[in-house]
Design a protein around this nucleic acid. Structure first.
Lengths: 250, 250
DNA sequence: GAGTGGTCTAGACCACAGA
DNA sequence: CTGTGGTCTAGACCACTCG
């Protein structure tokens, strides 16, 4: 291997990982070994590894080594995230299927709690200060690698004492169906997609590098009367998602 | 200023820039000065500056200094990129208005040429190998800072000899209206949104850091017969864009 | 304790812009 | 020629994991 800069080292390793020479879950050679291979200092190799970590290809851990965390084909929402959440059961099923298809093991963590929504969510829901929500939080993982953070906020007065409080398992038909049966059928939705740096909480929950970018999708569903009865916020590391949609032109 | 790590230095400078202590277009203090201020080595400051450059807040240039390139409020597409391109004239106007509103000067570069589409575009347009397109490329800048790269591909057999070949100025009513008048009214569109690392060409054209992420939106408009007559690819550095959309739930 | 990655420094050297 | 940022090194030191 000829003398290389940190961009070259990163590019070469990136290529090798994507080409499958380092399987997801395997451990890269230690830094001193890579340094020898590329005839570069260990500092240089470290910088290259940080770059790959920012892309989500690897996860270096002190004392343990550098694990490959690349998820080969991108997770994509064939129709659109909206459509996926529309049918809760299927959304879970779709995630499971996509992860299984690439040979990884999908897992889910679901928590349900009562909490005050952040200002942005409260505004979308038209809630005043002090009005709580039911929050359904989900964390989706592929073979232990966190891939998606998902939080659905529903006004407490709507959700209290209903099936929505069920934490375990997926609500059959999804949150939107459940809300519909409770008398709040949704007819339209608004979505806001943003690409940004992760918050500290997201860095922890998604176990990602500080320099990774995330996609933040905020989805608000409203009834025929115009009331927003559900806001779902999804955060996922940027390179995991391709969004596709079809729509009519007027 | 207490002793700081590179993340601290980057965070502090980021805060100062966003708070307006360093105006867009101004030049940051030189590296040795910042190093003294933060009681850190120059190498450390360099790393911090690279981090900010990857976020698009600054553009360090050898010999010249480090220019602040932050665009304060985010450029956002109120309805959706699709809607903006639908009305070409207005899209240009909307960009101009948003840039002017934050005190910067919008400029445009438009080129029109005949070229072979890349494989992905050709497939969307249903073109065989060797069939050319008319390409209308636009580069939108705010006070000299490139913000958007835009390429519209139209099959040559449709565009040849029409108003679409007009390079200067915006086609009144936009490309979609022009196509409609040529007998190809569009009734629906497909969009694919992806967040990724920039290509080398994009790094040059957008004058961005290698580590910056870009948003890539590919928009395909089709007629009632199902023929795709126009594909528009838009690339913009990630933090410049917030996408919003409204749609019905069925 | 040995080996992992993470951070930082001091300094060398380079590429480039501008007076 | 001076000052700018960019890259790289060698090595010190640290935090962590695992046997």
């Amino acid at each position: 291997m000829a003398k290389a800069g940190h961009n070259d080292i990163a590019a070469q390793l990136r290529k090798e990982i994507i080409d499958g020479q380092h399987a997801t879950g395997s451990v890269l050679p230690p830094v001193p070994e890579l340094a020898a291979r590329f005839r570069a200092s260990e500092s240089l190799v470290s910088i290259a590894l940080q770059q790959l970590a920012a892309d989500g290809l690897i996860r270096p851990e002190r004392g343990r080594g550098t694990t490959v965390t690349w998820i080969p084909p991108r997770l994509h929402s064939p129709a659109r995230f909206a459509q996926a959440t529309r049918e809760g059961g299927q959304a879970k099923g779709a995630f499971d299927a996509e992860i299984k298809a690439i040979g990884l093991v999908p897992t889910h963590e679901i928590t349900v709690e009562r909490a005050a929504p952040p200002a942005e969510i409260a505004e979308l829901l038209g809630l005043a200060e002090g009005q709580d929500c039911l929050v359904r939080r989900r964390r989706l993982l592929a073979s232990g690698i966190p891939m998606v953070l998902n939080a659905t906020w529903i006004p407490w007065e709507i959700a209290e004492g209903t099936v929505l409080e069920t934490p375990e398992a997926t609500i059959v038909g999804g949150v939107k169906s459940a809300l519909s049966e409770l008398g709040f059928p949704q007819v339209a939705a608004h979505e806001r997609i943003e690409v940004r740096r992760p918050t500290e909480d997201e860095v922890d929950a998604l176990e990602i590098n500080l320099n990774r970018t995330v996609i933040d999708i905020v989805h608000a569903g409203r009834t025929a009367e115009g009331r927003v009865v559900e806001v779902t916020a999804m955060v996922t590391p940027a390179h995991y998602l391709v969004i596709e949609s079809d729509f009519p032109l007027t």
